[in-house]
């Protein structure tokens, strides 16, 4: 069963930025795009165990802080070497100024 988990106030994530969110033993990266949409992926890069929340968001792309592997955080798609495995994405909604992600 899918459940919506309260992440944070929407203003806690800057535009074109990312934060780390941990819940129930799992870690996520939650993004706010330059167009003010919200997105979520697994927290760790698929290449090495590095958290993406330390990475750089540019347009639709999150770049891993370790080796600059790039993913589209809206679709999870890996954008080429050194990353070749896509990121898992999660549904996100904003309700009453709060950001929620759907897990499970």
């Amino acid at each position: 069963m899918s459940i919506w988990i309260d992440v944070c106030d929407k203003d806690e994530i800057d535009e074109e930025d990312v934060i780390r969110f941990d819940h129930d033993g799992k870690s996520y990266a939650v993004y706010r795009s330059p167009e003010d949409s919200f997105h979520a992926t697994d927290g760790h890069c698929t290449h090495e165990n590095v958290h993406l929340a330390d990475g750089l968001v540019m347009d639709d792309i999150i770049e891993c802080p370790k080796h600059n592997g790039r993913f589209n955080y809206k679709t999870g798609q890996a954008k080429g070497a050194p990353v070749c495995v896509n990121l898992k994405t999660y549904a996100v909604k904003v309700d009453g100024g709060r950001v929620f992600i759907q897990v499970g």
Partner: peptide, 11 residues
């Protein structure tokens, strides 16, 4: 520690 400086170095 960890990825603390990564974003600023990339920028």
């Amino acid at each position: 520690r960890g990825g603390a400086v990564a974003r600023d170095i990339r920028l």
